[in-house]
Design a protein around this nucleic acid. Structure first.
Lengths: 213, 213
DNA sequence: TTTTTTCTAATGGTTTTCCAGTAGTTTTAC
DNA sequence: GTAAAACTACTGGAAAACCATTAGAAAAAA
C-alpha cells in the first residue's frame, strides 16, 4: 500500500499501544514503529533525530504534559513529522486548538482500524484528516468556539466551587462573611465570563473546562 | 497460571480491544474471549447465557448506555460474572458508584499488562481489586460516596441535558411541546433522584456520574 | 507610586426555580 | 390483559436567581 514508513506512538496506555501495534503492523509496511510514554521522552528523542518520523499518533492527555502545547513544540523541532491527535475527547474546541498548533489531523480512540489507516495515509499525502465522528463534530460550527478560557480570580474559583456544591448565595455569603449581594455580583461576573445565562450551563461549562473536580 | 477461563470485553474502542486481546491471550489460558461494542449487545447475550462469563472488562463510557447502571443490570442477570470497570476516569465517586452497583473492581486504562493480569486473578479469587493509581485515589475517604445511581428515564435524560445546556423550563417546554409545569415536575423528580436541592449540584453530580458529555 | 484589577456592596425590579401534593393518560412489562 | 412505570399536568406560594448599573476600598501589578 505504502512505501515503508516510520510511525511513532506517544501514549501512556499499554493496552492502546498494544492495540495500535497490532493494527499498524498488519496494515502497513513499517520501517520502524517507535513507542513513547511521556512527552518528555519524545521531545528528547525528536530533538536529536529530527524529521525521521513520518507520522506521530499523539495522545492528548498525558501524565506529564498538555498535548496541545506538546504538539506545537514537536512541529517546531520536526516540521516534516505529521502529527495526528489521538484521544478520547470529542471536543470541538480542543481539536481546533490542536490544529492551530500545527497538528495534521485528529482521531478519536474509538476509531476503527480502517479509519486509523485512512487517516495515516491521508496525513502522509499532506492532507488534514479526521476520523468520522470528529468530522461531524467540526462540521457544525458552534458560536462559543473561539471563546478563550476566561481567567478566574481566586475568589471566583472559590465561589464557583461553592455554587457547584449546591449552596445558595445566602449560604455562601454567610460562610464567607460577606454580603449576599456580593455573592450575587460574583455569580453574575462568573456567568458573564463564561458567556452563559444561568448556573446550569455555568456548572456544565466549568466542568468541561476542567475547572471543577 | 489459571485453569481455563472465559473473559468478555465490552468496549467501543477497536484499538483497546485489540490491545487487550493481545495481552490476555499471551498471559492467560483462555477458554473464550468475547467482544462486545455496546451495552445493548452485551445485555442481550448475558440474558441468554447467564453466568457463563467469568470476568467482564467493562468500559464505563459507552455510546448507548451509562456504565454504572449497566453494571447493576449485568450483576442482576449474571451474578457470578466478575465485573471490572475499565475506563479512563480516575474519579473516586465514579468508582464508588460502580462498587455500590456490584462491580468487583476497577482498572484505569493506563494500567500495565501485569496490573491487568493481577486484577483479573484477584477478581477470580473473589476479591475486590483495583489498579495501582485507583488504590491511592480511593484510600482517601470522602463523604457522600455510596449513593446508588438512580436509573433515569429517557425523558429525564433528555431534559437533564437540556437543563445542562442552560435552557429554562419554559424554553424546554416550548421545544418539547408540553406544559412548563410538566418540565418543572421532571426537574423536581430529577433532583429528588439525585438527592440534591438545586440545579447547580444536579448538573455537577450528573457530570461526575458521566451522565453528561 | 501610580494604575489596574479584584473584592466588596448597593438599588430595585423581573423571572425562574423550588417545594409539596395530587392525579389522569399513555406506554411498557409480565 | 392487567399491573406497573412513565409521562403528563395542575394549584399555589416561598425562595432564589437573574438583570443592569454604579461605585468605594483593598490588593496586586506596572
Amino acid at each position: 500500500m505504502n512505501s515503508s514508513i516510520t510511525i511513532a506512538i506517544l501514549d501512556d496506555h499499554p493496552v492502546v499501544i498494544e492495540g495500535l501495534r497490532k493494527i499498524l503492523h498488519t496494515h502497513f509496511q513499517l520501517k520502524e514503529l517507535l513507542e513513547f510514554h511521556t512527552g518528555h521522552d519524545f521531545i528528547e528523542y525528536v530533538a536529536k533525530q529530527r524529521n525521521t518520523i513520518d507520522v506521530l499518533l499523539l495522545d492528548i492527555t498525558l501524565p506529564d504534559t498538555n498535548g496541545v502545547e506538546l504538539c506545537r513544540r514537536i512541529k517546531l523541532l520536526s516540521p516534516n513529522t505529521k502529527v495526528l491527535g489521538f484521544s478520547n475527547h470529542n471536543d470541538r474546541a480542543l481539536v481546533m486548538q490542536l490544529l492551530a498548533n500545527g497538528a495534521n489531523g485528529y482521531l478519536l480512540k474509538n476509531a476503527s482500524a480502517s479509519e486509523i489507516m485512512r487517516c495515516i495515509t491521508d496525513a502522509m499525502n499532506g492532507q488534514i484528516t479526521f476520523s468520522e465522528e470528529i468530522k461531524t463534530i467540526i462540521s457544525k460550527p458552534s458560536p462559543s468556539d473561539l471563546r478563550t478560557v476566561p481567567p478566574l480570580t481566586k475568589r471566583e474559583q472559590q465561589i464557583l466551587k461553592m455554587i457547584a456544591d449546591g449552596r445558595t448565595s445566602n449560604e455562601i455569603s454567610a460562610e464567607l462573611q460577606v454580603s449576599p449581594l456580593t455573592i450575587e455580583t460574583h455569580r453574575r461576573n462568573l456567568m458573564q465570563k463564561f458567556d452563559v445565562k444561568n448556573v446550569a450551563s455555568l456548572i456544565k461549562t466549568a466542568h468541561q473546562l476542567k475547572l471543577l473536580s
